[in-house]
Design a protein around this nucleic acid. Structure first.
Lengths: 201, 201, 201, 201
DNA sequence: CATGAATGAGCCTTCATTCAT
DNA sequence: AATGAATGAAGGCTCATTCAT
């Protein structure tokens, strides 16, 4: 009987280490040698589970995005409408070590995505999913009367999405300036926009 | 006497080529050898003007940011207040080949900036300058009565900045979706926020 | 399990080739590429066993000095006093291909040693060890009555050491002049000094 | 009228700088770039006076040896026999900064000489000249009755030469041990050998 | 005379990858 | 399943040298 190993589990373990390295030392210095060194696995072992570095890389970014989704989902349990939207924002912004790392990793690959179709698709998928979620919450909010029914959702969904991305990005570039507190205030501002009376009539 | 060449001019010419390559094939594949190949210059030639790759790289990103500033400045000539702000937004968003490349290059280095202090400082500087400009225009707008005097500028300046960055970033990741037209509409929306009567009184 | 190789053995095999090259074509032309070419190994192979060229180099000079010591030790077996000293001299002088190469290699690094602390220490160690050996043999000779007990050993030990080094050095620079025969005669002369009645008074 | 420049003077000036560099940073780091930097001359200037690096190098070692000879000659003025020999030894041993540098430079090239015919010839020439001088002084000493007439000069000349080279070499490798004082004592010992009654029988 | 622009060979090193065991 | 030995491509960089001016 051959030893039974849980492939997926091992793959995930490796991916987790790679994610940490990507966020800490960057994609350039995250070499297979270095992964092997830090994980304690052998080089061959790693390539036994990922046929090459590209596959390892793409799996890592995918894993990060999935984990991000899971975390948001978990925090959302039961919520809907504006409450959900606010939680969504709070769970996406880089206010914890984990989320900061997520954005760092994402940003590692935005550069690649800018010039590589495959990476762009992966990154676009995450952005697209976020957009869809936002619209969902806004629709719920409309249903619940939290947001005016006549309002067109796509523009304000985009506004929310972009402020989220822009803040996350700038908070990563200027961590001393965009503190956790300031980010939370920004979410408040973002929410205020929906609550605000849309017209004077 | 040897041929006299304008060093700065030469440096700029090289930097221009590097910028194009960064936006086209990405930072990873932009090797000195490849730069030499594409530019027709020899490897030694490039080293003659930049003592190492890091210097070449940092000069390129700096040049890109400076060119970006110049373009905005030029377009702004004479404008102030909300008109200036709108032009600023239009000149910053990736709606032309040149500006798209600028963001691609910026994004190339966000990943580096996420893990490298020096690059972070350089990128943060650009973001900070943008923020300051936005605040300036908003102050002018207040002076001119375009924007209510009682309103606090920093939050709405941040809102503008983040929407700009978020849109630019997403437009780069999803170019088919965030078309030039949609970006321009987004700017309109961003401006509408300031123009909108803030209260019903 | 991968092929198990004896690392030390491999390292020694490489070092042996490098030693031969150092003695033949000199340190300047002994590049890793050339080593790879002459040994039939790949560049990566060499790097697999030595993390960089400096380590390879320092190991080679150390190996040469150790082999030199071993050879002398072996030839000395059982000998002591003046007989040991004479054998020591004969085993150190560049009268065989192997010993000639040893001196050539040593001389390759004297230049480096002259301006580099680390290399100087390594070279000084060999010289110091030789001096100590010489003194040992002379003490034995005194015990055995071959050399007067009243004589101060350090000066004559130095004399022996310097004549050895000077002859080895000149024999390397003027191989046609300082033939094997002449070197052996020189050893005789060196020995005669001790045997000679120091005074009649 | 073209500017009249003294070629030889300029060549010597360059050579002097190169000599200093060879003794300080070693042959490996003495690149033409670095020479140009330290001398203030341009790279082209240097190669205007020396057709390539090899020529510059060989001229430098030759210049060093000539300067060494001059210094000895000057110190010898009027002396002959054993007095001359002693002065010769004192003027050759690395007891001053200048002479230390001379030996350092010589040793830089012994490694090259070991594997290069041309350099070997140059170095051999210096050694040969030293040997001849020593013999001359010894012959004078014999004429003057300072040294027994029956004694064969070649062996004791060689002894003197080798002790000189060996001491110089070891003093360069172990400068802390072979101090100026110890070197001078060593010369005394070397001289004592000639003065010593060769036999009591 | 003298400069320094420009070249390209060659160096050490790192790396992803293959493969026998 | 897992290892690590071995490879060779490619990277950044330094250098001696040539040559137009």
């Amino acid at each position: 009987m051959p030893k039974i190993v849980d492939h997926d589990e091992r793959r995930e373990k490796i991916v987790e280490i790679v994610a940490e390295m990507l966020a800490t030392i960057g994609v350039e210095r995250t070499t297979i040698r270095e992964i092997a060194r830090q994980s304690g696995y052998s080089r061959g072992f790693i390539e036994h589970y990922f046929k090459n570095k590209e596959e390892l890389t793409i799996n890592t970014i995918r894993w990060v995005n999935e984990r991000s989704l899971s975390r948001v989902d978990e925090a959302l349990c039961g919520l809907s409408g504006l409450a959900a939207l606010q939680t969504f924002g709070e769970q996406m912004l880089p206010v914890t070590h984990e989320i900061r790392n997520e954005w760092k990793i994402r940003m590692q690959f935005w550069g690649v995505a800018a010039v590589s179709h495959e990476h762009r698709r992966e990154q676009a998928r995450r952005s697209d999913a976020a957009e869809k979620s936002i619209i969902d919450y806004l629709e719920q909010a409309q249903q619940a009367g939290e947001v005016e029914k006549t309002i067109e959702l796509l523009p304000i969904a985009h506004s929310f999405l972009h402020r989220l991305y822009g803040l996350a990005c700038n908070a990563t570039l200027r961590p001393g300036y965009f503190t956790r507190h300031r980010q939370m205030l920004a979410v408040q501002e973002m929410m205020a926009e929906f609550a605000r009376p849309r017209s004077a009539d």
